[in-house]
């Protein structure tokens, strides 16, 4: 275990706060050095706060569903929260935030990942596909069609994650039998219990031979 990280004088909890205080002080000091006049005004308007916030953000380039984004994000922002809270791509769902349910599954460079376990800044330059980017215009992806046909959902909340995972499951070559599908889809929980219908949908798409 990395004992050296456990520094008793600087508890991990306070780390962010310390860095922020440092940033804020630096920004105020810089302002002070340049133009001492407006400092009072700066403090009143909480400019130091804004400057510090700007320092804390990291530039990030992403391609999401074919659209290019140039963003500034906090390093602690997950890909899931970036999608849902900042970009309003709410098709990707939060079911646990701990990598336990699969509701947040998206494709990053074609691989399925739990976007809640992925910091947005780690995906710089990557291609992200969410449920909103799966259909081609009005034409649904065959997996989406199959989910509707086989009633592979009830409440629909796990569904975007199930579908993204299902597409990847076939692409990975892990959809060769019912048993294999069940095994490789087990990271996607459906509390409504639509599992047999989901498996039927995946089998139909797999056996239908369409391009996924």
């Amino acid at each position: 275990m990395a004992q050296e990280n456990l520094n008793p004088t600087a508890p991990a909890d306070d780390h962010d706060e310390a860095r922020r205080t440092f940033l804020k002080q630096t920004s105020v000091l810089t302002a002070l050095a340049l133009t001492p006049g407006p400092v009072v005004q700066a403090a009143a308007a909480q400019w130091d706060e804004k400057v510090a916030a700007a320092f804390e953000k990291v530039p990030l380039k992403l391609d999401i569903n074919g659209k290019k984004y140039r963003l500034q994000v906090e390093p602690r922002t997950t890909l899931l929260d970036l999608l849902r809270e900042q970009l309003h791509l709410t098709g990707t769902k939060k079911g646990c935030d701990y990598g336990q349910c699969g509701a947040c599954t998206v494709h990053v460079d074609g691989q399925r990942v739990n976007s809640c376990l992925t910091l947005a800044v780690m995906q710089d330059g990557r291609k992200v596909t969410t449920i909103e980017g799966l259909a081609e215009g009005d034409k649904l992806h065959p997996m989406q069609e199959a989910f509707i046909k086989h009633d592979g959902f009830q409440c629909g909340y796990c569904t975007p994650g199930q579908i993204m995972s299902a597409v990847a499951c076939i692409r990975e070559g892990h959809a060769n039998s019912e048993g294999e599908i069940r095994e490789y889809m087990s990271g996607n929980i459906c509390r409504c219990g639509a599992y047999p219908n989901i498996v039927a949908a995946i089998q139909e798409v797999k056996n239908g031979g369409q391009k996924v």
């Binding site: 791509l89 098709g91 449920i131 909103e132 649904l140 509707i148 046909k149 009633d151």
Partner: peptide, 13 residues
């Protein structure tokens, strides 16, 4: 099939 199926499979619900 469900009347809201399309909304649910596209993330639009």
């Amino acid at each position: 099939s469900r009347v809201d199926g399309r909304l649910k499979v596209t993330g639009a619900a």
